[in-house]
């Protein structure tokens, strides 16, 4: 049988693709590329001159940026190590039937409904050592807790805040995965005499693998783009101890108006997230095939 090759369908999606590529991706991205290889002050294109890869070399060698990158990576890894197991544990503890299901789901989802900067503001008040519930309580206990002064406090608070804000996502995904397991699996395991741990390890975990991989992917990429909450809570301080990548980028681009370096930095940042996402995607699809 001869297959009819007809490519006309492409024309039908062309307008949408054009809008998508040109206005939302290609043009803005090319502007950034433009800034990253030239020295331009503001919009003064007339006095721009080509600098090649100088901005990129600057960026990569910048010790401040390297430090921010290290902090970012540490933060993302630690927050995942906490959120994924914690999310699964909470999902396992959630009620499975009755009215309590809805109650639990709503309670768990609440943090997800709050805008990022509101979360930051909320925690800012919460942790104030003079009037904040947490801040006052910890100080009353004799701990010298102050996120404006103490880098460790600031760092841990940002971490706890992120866990508080985002663990719910893992809970919801894991809960959905758990509910999708037919009751017969649990029965079969009981008939076999399998322990609770064995049920988790050999029934629940493998059946949740798909949603958990998605949760890891989403949470990793999201945490890598962390910006608003620490910006509001600590402003990156004290010093630069809670300055993560996107905030450092904002400092360079918006604060110092150093557009060349900011552009080069953006591209490196973007390529790094892209590479990581690709890596995750490849690993996930390969694991699924196996």
């Amino acid at each position: 049988m001869e297959k009819i090759q007809n490519q006309k369908a492409w024309f039908l999606v062309l307008p949408a693709l054009a809008v998508l590529f040109i206005f939302s991706a290609v043009i803005p991205l090319m502007t950034v590329v433009n800034y990253s290889v030239q020295d331009i002050f503001g919009q003064d294109y007339a006095n721009a001159f080509f600098v090649g890869t100088e901005w990129f070399r600057d960026t990569i060698r910048d010790p401040e940026l390297q430090a921010a990158f290290g902090r970012q990576l540490a933060f993302s890894v630690i927050t995942l190590l906490i959120q994924i197991p914690l999310g699964v544990a909470i999902a396992l503890a959630m009620p499975t039937r009755g009215i309590m299901v809805s109650v639990a789901l709503v309670l768990v989802s609440l943090p997800l409904l709050i805008p990022w900067n509101v979360v930051g503001t909320g925690w800012l008040l919460f942790t104030r050592p003079d009037i904040g519930l947490l801040g006052v309580a910890l100080n009353e206990l004799g701990l010298d807790y102050n996120i404006q002064r103490n880098p460790v406090d600031a760092w841990l608070t940002v971490l706890v805040m992120d866990v508080w804000h985002w663990t719910s996502l893992t809970v919801l995904l894991a809960y959905a995965g758990l509910r999708a397991i037919p009751g017969a699996y649990y029965q079969a395991a009981r008939v076999d005499g399998a322990s609770r741990w064995a049920i988790f390890r050999y029934v629940e975990l493998p059946r949740m693998r798909g949603v958990l991989l998605i949760a890891i992917l989403l949470r990793f990429m999201d945490s890598f783009k962390l910006y608003a909450e620490p910006f509001v809570l600590t402003g990156g301080g004290p010093g630069t101890t809670t300055t993560f990548l996107s905030q450092y980028l904002a400092t360079i681009g918006v604060g110092q108006f150093d557009l060349g370096r900011a552009a080069a930095f953006s591209l490196v940042y973007f390529l790094f997230i892209l590479a990581l996402s690709w890596l995750f995607y490849t690993v996930i699809t390969r694991m699924d095939r196996e």
Binding site: P182, A184, Y185, Q187, A188, A189, R190, V191, D192, G193, A194, R201, Y202, V203, L205, P206, R207
Partner: peptide, 29 residues
């Protein structure tokens, strides 16, 4: 409890441990 009885059961759905090979599945009991 079912754990202390000598029972085996097969269901209408195909129930095996999803994370175990066929060999380990058969060996599990």
């Amino acid at each position: 409890s079912v754990r202390n009885r000598s029972v085996a059961m097969v269901y209408q759905q195909f129930i095996n441990y999803p994370g175990m090979s066929v060999r380990d599945n058969i060996a599990s009991p």
